[in-house]
Every structure is written in C-alpha cells, then in structure tokens.
C-alpha cells in the first residue's frame, strides 16, 4: 500500500509553476491566515471563487498552503517548510562549510596566526 503525503518535490514545483498560484502565495505572505472569501476579493475580476478554490487545492496538495479551522471559518496559511526542504537539499550542505570556515577564521585571528 502506498500512503500519499503532501509536499513531494514534484508537487511543489508543479504548484509554483503557475503565476496565479504564486500570486496567491504572495497574498498569504503579506497577510497570512485569509479565508477563501478574503482571497477571492483580492483577485477582483482576475479569478473566480472557483478558480481560487482550484488553485488553493493544488497548493494544499503541495504542502505550501495549510488550512486551519477557526470557528466557522477555514483559514489558509503559507507553509514555507517545503521550500526550506528544497533549500536544504541543494544549498544546505554548504551551510556547514561556511560555518566551519568562519570558525577557522576566528580561531586563526584569535591565535594571531
């Protein structure tokens, strides 16, 4: 049995490949925790409520958007963790080197070498 978990790299890239979905993420980045109604209102005539719903669904599958119930309302939050994981995959291994290089430099300076 294959259990499906959101947030695979394919899902994240697919979600980010669409300009409307990137705009939705931008909107949540500047004001997190919006309802479907609030999000739809920000897109005026560019996107219907149905269009916003459809894109939010793709963003949820990718793990980039997480929803929480707040009383009767469902709020949408930007989840940056999948992007952090991509960062860790291709950039993270250099972080240790940079840190160790700085530590070496500090040691050398303190030892007066």
């Amino acid at each position: 049995m294959v259990t499906y978990y959101p947030g695979s790299v394919d899902d994240v890239f697919r979600a980010l490949a669409d300009p409307s979905r990137r705009r939705l993420l931008d909107t949540l980045f500047s004001d997190d925790g919006q309802t479907l109604g609030q999000l739809t209102a920000q897109f005026d005539d560019d996107m219907t409520r149905f269009g916003v719903m459809k894109h939010l669904r793709v963003l949820e599958v990718s793990g980039l958007v997480v929803t929480r119930r707040d009383g009767r309302q469902k709020r949408h939050y930007l989840n940056p963790v999948p992007i952090q994981q991509m960062h860790d995959r291709w950039i993270g291994k250099f972080r240790g080197r940079f840190t160790s290089a700085l530590t070496d430099l500090k040691t050398r300076l303190e030892d007066g070498k």
Partner: peptide, 12 residues
Amino acid sequence: MTDLRSVYQIYV
C-alpha cells in the same frame, strides 16, 4: 485584518 498566527507543517 487577521490575527497574527503562523502555521508550519511537515511529514516525518
């Protein structure tokens, strides 16, 4: 304006 709240999620 929404209350300030951040939500993070990951599968382990």
